[in-house]
Design a protein around this nucleic acid. Structure first.
Lengths: 219, 219
DNA sequence: AAATATTTTTAAGCTTACTTAAATATTTAT
DNA sequence: ATAAATATTTAAGTAAGCTTAAAAATATTT
């Protein structure tokens, strides 16, 4: 299982989570910054290895085995993020970048040791769920994106679904952090913007950000 | 700087430490489990990159730059070993294997964070010195191999220079661990064997082992 | 010092993971 | 429904990092 293969199935898994149609070779190519041709090539190769189903011009579909590989890599990524976040004073973006490399060089044994050390956490520092050793995600995700949150309600940040440095810088500057509380003061639905109150500051967010910030109602 | 290149210069560095003549392509090939032809090929490529000096049929010599690369990888390897050893209950051999992979996927920043977290240790769990961020090994090594130790004297184990599982299993079973104390009860110099007393057990070691176990006099 | 054995090098070839360019199919817009 | 735009696929080619086989140089043994 090469790094290229692991990243390929991971990209399919992540894109597919968002939208089952976002797994066409072109989407994966864009995600991995390779050419469309390379993505088609790889898709055929992985179909031969039974990691995915490939039909010309159709979205790629991971097999059970392919999903297992993807979840294993995602597990390792999120465990590394959790460990580095806990141990070192590093930005979420830097941590993400390190985890992106370490995830491919981590035995199942080491992953389990890290998980155990951390108390088998269910979420990483972005709020993303960590699959268990069997590749199961047991947690039910009840969170919604900020773009779908209701005016006037108070929420707790549950996920920051990004790996973009600018986004994380913005989050760090404004207290947008996993577990923090905010109030949705106004939804500008026509303009697809959301005004929130956090740390006594009022911030206006556009859809680029409200679609990747997930929250839970504060019960 | 690919994984193959990093491992290549590392192998030259390590073999060269032992004996300046052990850096011929064949020695490196054996160390890395690749063919002699591949080693010669790589040597030429790295000479073009100014990482080493290559003369046909001569031992390979790292340039200053090549040495820096080797020491950077070795630093990361030993920092990972130190961290994993401290945090997790894993065998030295397993830890070595993980570090062997992680060392190539670790930014200088992360290496520094690990070092700082550990209190900038000068030695790893095998007793091997950890180069600092500049690639300097500042510690003077006064240790000698068990094969050269004097009968009757008491020593402290300072290095276990191996990555062989059987060796580490043997060490673990017999209390041969970095920092532990032993007495050299007899040197069978003709047969190149050494009898030691450790944990109230008498053990006879042959040269395979006494040449890679390093000790310091117990002053 | 010559004969033999061992190493090193060269040469040709393979696989993986890409690339670009052109052909083909699908999607979108009119 | 058709034309135009976009995406996918095919084809040909490249670089890295290996392999095996044969040729050339060096080391070892007698």
């Amino acid at each position: 299982m090469s790094v290229a293969i692991e990243n390929f199935v991971k990209a399919i898994y992540k894109n597919g989570m968002r939208d089952n149609n976002d797994t066409k070779p072109g989407n994966i190519a864009k995600e991995l910054k390779i050419s469309n041709a390379a993505a088609t090539d790889m898709a055929k190769k992985l179909a031969a290895k039974d990691l995915l189903e490939y039909e010309k011009y159709k979205p790629l579909k991971l097999t059970e085995q392919g999903t297992k590989v993807a979840l294993s890599v995602i597990r390792k990524h999120r465990l590394w993020e959790s460990l580095l976040f806990k141990m070192f004073d590093m930005s979420l973006h830097d941590i993400h970048r390190e985890a992106e490399l370490l995830e491919h060089q981590t035995s199942d044994l080491l992953a389990d040791k890290i998980s155990e050390y951390l108390g088998n956490p269910k979420f990483d520092p972005h709020g993303d769920p960590i699959p268990n050793a069997k590749g199961e995600i047991t947690t039910v995700d009840t969170s919604i994106s900020l773009s779908n949150a209701q005016e006037g309600k108070t929420y707790i940040i549950s996920r920051l679904m990004s790996d973009d440095k600018e986004f994380f810088d913005f989050c760090a500057q404004n207290g947008l952090k996993y577990g923090n509380t905010l109030v949705v003061s106004k939804q500008f639905s026509k303009n697809k913007m959301t005004q929130i109150l956090i740390n006594n500051n009022t911030i206006l967010l556009n859809q680029d950000f409200t679609s990747i910030i997930y929250v839970n109602e504060n019960n």
